[in-house]
Each structure stands twice: as C-alpha cells, then as structure tokens.
Design a protein around this nucleic acid. Structure first.
Lengths: 238, 238
DNA sequence: TCAAAAGTGTTATCATTACACCCATGG
DNA sequence: CCATGGGTGTAATGATAACACTTTTGA
C-alpha cells in the first residue's frame, strides 16, 4: 500500500519527555533503546509516527504506552521541532510533549520497536539519538519555569504528604540543595491550598502533620491571582 | 509531479497570529481574506504549507510575507494544532506562531492567495476560517501571560518613549482601563532597564522625560532573577 | 536521654498599594 | 492664568529572608 500526494510532505512524529520522581528524590527521564535504524542501539525519547485519525496528544500517549508500558499520564505540549536535517530519514517534524510523574506508580516495560526502557538520572544521560538532547534541554527549562506558577508535585506525592516531602520535591525539580524550611512552609501554607488530614505514625521522631491538596481552593486562587494581575498590570518577573 | 510514501502523512502548515499596536492603542490582529477554497471569502490567519527544505519558523515568515507583505518580525512558536477534522481538505497539522509588532511600521499589502489583508480590532473579529478562532484565543492568552515576565513593548514604541506611552501600551495589551500611574512608574524604574535620554519638546503641558530601553541591563536582570528563583524556590504565582 | 526530624518566634528589610498632591508647558 | 498631562511624597500594610530556637517521637 502506498500514498500519493501532489506536493511532498514531511513525516510527522511525536516525542515524549517523561520526568520521573521517586522516594530517592532524583529527577529522572524515561528513555528507550532503539531497536531499529537509524540510531539503532542508541537511547532516545519514546515517540513515533502520528496516525492519520488520531490527535497529536493521543499519538504521544499511544507511543508512550507501546514503547514503555507507561500510561495514565497528563502530558502537555512542549514545542515542535522541525529543522530540516534533524532526522537522517528525511524531513521529519516532531511535536514534543512532556510530563512529570511519580516514577514508582509507572512501572516500565519494553515493547515493539524498543529494546530496553530505562529511567536515567537527569545528570547522567547518555548521548541521545536525533536532536533529543536538545528536546530534553527545552523540557527541563520548561519544567523549572512551570514549577513557579503551577502546583506541580501534588500529583507526585502520596495523597497525604508532609511538608518535608513537598519541600524535597521542589528542591529536586529546581535542582537546588536546600530551601529554607521556615520560609517554604510559611509560603505554602499561606496559600491555603492544603488541608490538614492527620499525623504521621510510627516514626522515630516528632510525627509530621499530613496534608492533602485542595484542588477547589487552588482553582479559586488561580482565578483571583489572574484578576490581580490584570488589575495591577505589569510585573517583569522572569 | 507527485510524491509517494509508504504510509499516509498529514499535511503540515504554519499559521501566524500577528498582533499590532499603533498610536490609537488598540490591539489588532492581522487577517487575510481567503481567495481559494476551502473557506473562500472567509477571513483567516496568514499561513500555508511548509516547504520541504525550510525550517518551520522560516515557513511562517515566508507565508506572512507572501500573503500580507509584512516582514522583519520576531515570531515565536505558540502551539501546534492537529486535531483530525480541523481542515476540510483532510488531515492538516498546523504549527502556529505569534508576534507583537508596531502596526505603523508594518504596512500591509495583499498578494497571491489572499484577496485582502486587514488589521482587525481584537474585540471586533469576524468569524474565522478553520479553527483559527481557537488559535487566536490561545495567542491572546499567551500574550497576556508573556507581558508579565518579558519586556514586551519596547520594540513597539519609538526608540525614545515616555513612561505614559509605555503605560498605555501595557493597559492595552492587558485589556485593562487604567493602571496606577505612581506604582507603574516606580516599578518600571526600579528595574533599572531604562535610560533617560532627554525630554519631550513642544507639548502643551509639562514635557515628559524620554527613555530608551537598555537591552544589556535587561539581560543581566533576567540572569539575576533566574538565580534568585533557583535559590529561594517555589512561588506559586499563576 | 539522645538522635532525628518536625515545627515555631522573631526581626529587619523590602515591595505593594492607595491617595493626594505639586510641576512645567503652550495657548 | 488655566488646562493638560507629567511627575512626586508618603504611610499603612504585607511579603521575604535569615537565623536560632523549641517540640515530639521511638529507640
């Protein structure tokens, strides 16, 4: 079977940058080892060609599932990479997606066109196929900006979590040694998006208060903040 | 001439959302009236098919130039729209770009596959072809967020400008009546990215101080702010 | 009673907001 | 001398940053 068009068309692919976090609090990325040429044997982002009847996001989730076994993640569009020459097979344009997941809730399993699947620590990545190094770099920057204005991380922790866990998570994602405990707590609690739901038990130190994220309050906060922004205007924060 | 592939491929297009501002301080968008089917006669974003040897951004700039005569703009990638069914001609995936330009420095001129080219006020847009309404909506949101952390606007004003001009610009882009003059000024000046370069002349009121944007200082500021962010960590701003 | 981690008090400094007021110019 | 924008003073309030301190638990 073959398909003929009046004008040439680039091939369209999707790629996924999946960040993973676990108890060890290392930030990792999910890679596959390519089973086929080009770049056979090299590590690459999970991804592949978009089918004709599927949405881009669907395609990304399908490839992710097929190649790594990972499913049920909330991905977001990152950027579309289309420089001629980025793929030796010819003109290939790739829409990249990214997500941050709780690593331990997403067991991996190699399949079909991938030899192996593995989580790599962010600062120990191998050389990647295609321009995937660049895609990862863009994703890391995006994640670190996102952390500023979105409550990332609540999905990554157990339903009930301690402020220390949350703080560690932020330290990991931001790639920083140690945030000030006092100030982190004040700030987070002042937002009023956490509900106290109990206390730790059976730990050999003062038990921490457990919190749960209050999504409704968060949505409300977002709304208010936006109105504030509009009211007071500019604020070159960067 | 025709082109044959083993698997079907979506067509790939680019679309441009060009925001324009002029002295009247209305926020406008550049549209073309389609000369061809589908949606012949309807208003649409400038855009078209990507050539095989050109980068996506190049394609967007080329289409913009060909269809509207507008050139020398800094466009940024916005989002890639690829829902099946968004184009009646079949599967078409479109990479959207956006830019904010000084309208009076970008004279328009219809050409080739566009009947007419026109600037439309943002709140008086006609019904648009394809899913271009949605693309515009996404672009407006992006522009309004961007205003917060990037010195948009300096390129839109004359090289030397007054703080009142700058303030008006922000009011326009944010779509707000009136920012507090005192606070706007304090804030902007405190950043230290403006250099005083003279005074207005020949106006029937106290002459305003003219400023010029200092790009070097801005770059430096961005750098410092990023380091701050990293140091102190989270800040759910939204 | 000790180690370990949780959690609090406090203070100096800076940023934000809100309002009222003064200034320089051409007509 | 007045209308028109340009531009400033100030004070209350709230946010941030830094540092040292107290509390509660199991072993």
């Amino acid at each position: 079977m073959s398909y003929t068009y009046e004008y040439p068309r680039p091939a369209l692919t999707v790629d996924c940058v999946i960040f993973g976090l676990d108890e060890s609090s290392k930030l990792k990325i999910l890679l596959i080892q390519r089973a086929l040429e080009p770049f056979k044997g090299a590590w690459a982002l999970p991804g592949g060609f978009v089918d004709m009847e599927e949405d881009l996001e669907e395609a990304a989730l399908r490839e992710l599932r097929e190649e790594t076994g990972v499913k049920d993640v909330f991905i977001e569009q990152l950027f579309t990479f289309g420089k001629p020459g980025r793929d030796p097979r010819g003109r290939v344009v790739s829409v990249a997606y990214y997500a941050l997941v709780n690593l331990s809730e997403h067991p991996v399993q190699a399949a079909s066109d991938a030899d192996h699947v593995e989580w790599f620590e962010l600062d120990e990545l191998p050389r990647l196929a295609f321009d995937h190094d660049q895609i990862v770099q863009v994703a890391v920057n995006r994640l670190r900006s996102k952390v500023r204005y979105q409550p990332i991380g609540f999905e990554l922790l157990p339903e009930n979590f301690t402020l220390s866990q949350l703080q560690k998570l932020y330290e990991t994602v931001l790639g920083v040694k140690q945030l000030n405990k006092r100030n982190f707590r004040t700030r987070i609690l002042k937002m009023g998006v956490l509900n106290e739901v109990g206390k730790q038990e059976g730990v050999a130190h003062r038990p921490a208060v457990l919190y749960r994220f209050d999504k409704a309050k968060y949505e409300q906060l977002v709304q208010e903040r936006y109105e504030n922004l509009i009211r007071r205007g500019v604020d070159f924060e960067v």
